[in-house]
Nucleic acid binder design. Structure first.
Lengths: 340, 340
DNA sequence: GTGAAAGCGCTAACAG
DNA sequence: CTGTTAGCGCTTTCAC
């Protein structure tokens, strides 16, 4: 179907070695020879076979990205940034969706089905620290989020406790005291959710407000639908909250939707803060106050870590644990103005 | 680093052939031998090297997906569906973002940098039909959207003219007559935008309304920001429209945002229809009326086409041109109720 | 500056 | 049922 290096060599009247040199620029080739080879390449439409090259090199130039789902503004945006950053490093990215399925995550980690990837960036969801530790890491790996057992792999994440604390404190500063939280995931032992809950409670306690379990709402997923459902439960409960801290923007937008549906005014009667700073929140009505992690930096750091591990012969580099900066972006859902 | 088939064979005291048979189940192996081999595999943590396998097989099991950007609800969702569908067919997906860059699209088409992918699904944006035709397709390819020169590659798309007509007709049915359109991209010769504009004009004419050029607003991108900008221009213009058909939901949500900012009530003073049926539109305030393409079917059909081309030895199968069904979903932005 | 040849890890055709 | 072996297309050490 497609011509090989050998055919190019034959046509140009040189050896395979020389063609290889021309293609890779790996050694000096006389201008004349180079041109003859280049012509042969063009005429034959030669493209190097990457499988062969990888087999030789022991590397594929492909890294894996495993995320719960592409269909999610946060992960979609992050994936986009990671793909761009990878491209800058001449890597291609294979994307896998785990859908929060433990089996899918484990399969990826063990490299079941064969080695294609030089490294893996994974945002574990269903797998617990325990599992991650026992599942031998068969390849360089960077974890996004809160599930790294110490020292097992590099980790890149924001300080969720501090961020949640800030978000909650912001609501307290507005004079709100009946502050609910939406987004707990008790069945998952999900590190992220637990840490955001911890920051939420910490802020409440510091302000002398006692956390009320009935205002900590669990969700089955992080989609808008679940945020809406949780909000409905809160509004149907005994005392209605006057503020909500949602653990993701999607949940927050779902909650806001339900507030509108029930005729509850935002932010007057109900202030809302989200987490992630997705695009939607900048154009919702009202616009959404949120914790904004530096996603660009998450992508850059994750790839830097991976590159270090892949290119460093020394396998004993201690795992790094990078904390990415974040900031609270105040918008309409917690202030009178529709600040952008 | 990782053990090879040969090592496994040595440890199990069999030949490479037998190990290969065990791994692939390609021939009958005695239960006893199988077990011995399996033990060796487990002990050594053997994983087949896919580069070698691909080199041998002439196939990689990897397909490419090239879209303008992952960071976009529509493409993110579509990419997710395609990845899942590919997985069902035991393919892995390499994702590339073109960012609407003609050069990036061309590079992909020519397979510059080497052959890794068995096939490519591409949603061309910047490249014109002309370019696509002249750029020799070096691999099986399916085009998503409106840019296929006839017969060059398979194409999967909705009937944009009909869909835009329906959307506009819906607005006319509500009694609106000053209907603007947001989303033209004249500089791109973009087939999709042109076809939606055509459907829009056709519906207007059929209803005896003369299309007004100043109500056809061009955008630089399909993001919410541009929708907001275009809406602002419309509101600042001479006669304000009483309805807007935006060529994507993101543009529609941007327009809606601007309407809110300017105190224009939706849908009372301004009805809005979008296109794509992204998740955000189901939870916006008000919820967004939109044209909903059957994305699941787009994904399924695109992969079916690709599979046919990859597995069919006959290269002369005529290119198919599949039209995917769509439907108009009426929600709050064009009706009094907040219908979900 | 260029050629010859070995071999990356795997599969499959050919023996036995 | 299992062993032997020849490449897949490329890079690279060793010669010239």
């Amino acid at each position: 179907m497609s011509s090989s290096l050998k055919e190019v060599a034959a046509r140009a009247g040189v050896s395979a070695r020389t063609v290889s040199n021309v293609v890779n620029g790996s050694a000096r080739v006389s201008a004349q020879t180079r041109q003859r080879v280049q012509e042969a390449i063009d005429e034959l439409g030669y493209r190097p076979n990457l499988a062969a090259r990888s087999l030789r090199a022991g590397r594929t130039g492909i890294i894996g990205l495993a995320i719960p789902e592409l269909h999610s503004p946060y992960f979609g945006e992050l994936a986009g940034l990671l793909v761009d950053e990878a491209r800058r490093r001449s890597w291609t990215v294979i994307i896998d969706q785990t859908h929060g399925d433990a089996e899918a995550e484990r399969r990826l980690l063990t490299g079941d089905g064969g080695r294609v990837m030089d490294g893996l960036i994974i945002s574990p969801w269903a797998l617990e620290a325990q599992d991650l530790a026992t599942t031998a890491p068969s390849l360089p790996m960077v974890l996004l989020g809160e599930r790294s057992p110490q020292g097992m792999a590099d980790r890149v994440a924001v300080d969720n406790v501090a961020a949640a604390d800030e978000a909650t404190t912001h609501l307290l500063t507005l004079g709100r005291r009946r502050i609910a939280a939406i987004g707990l995931q008790p069945h998952l032992q999900n590190g992220t959710a637990e840490q955001r809950a911890e920051g939420y409670r910490r802020a409440l306690r510091r302000a002398g407000v006692r956390p009320r379990p009935e205002w900590e709402r669990a969700v089955g997923s992080l989609h808008r639908r679940e945020g809406a459902r949780a909000m409905a439960e809160l509004l149907d409960g005994g005392t209605a909250p006057d503020a909500v801290f949602a653990f993701t923007d999607e949940l927050a937008l779902g909650a806001m939707h339900m507030a509108h549906t029930r005729g509850v005014r935002v932010p007057e009667e109900l202030a809302i803060v989200g987490f992630d700073d997705i695009e939607d929140g900048r154009f919702s009505h009202p616009t959404l106050t949120t914790v904004s992690p530096d996603k660009r930096q998450i992508a850059a750091r994750a790839l830097q870590c991976l590159a270090d591990r892949i290119y460093s012969p020394d396998n004993e580099v201690p795992a790094s644990d990078l904390t990415i900066p974040h900031r609270l972006v105040v918008r309409g859902s917690t202030s009178g103005t529709q600040a952008h």
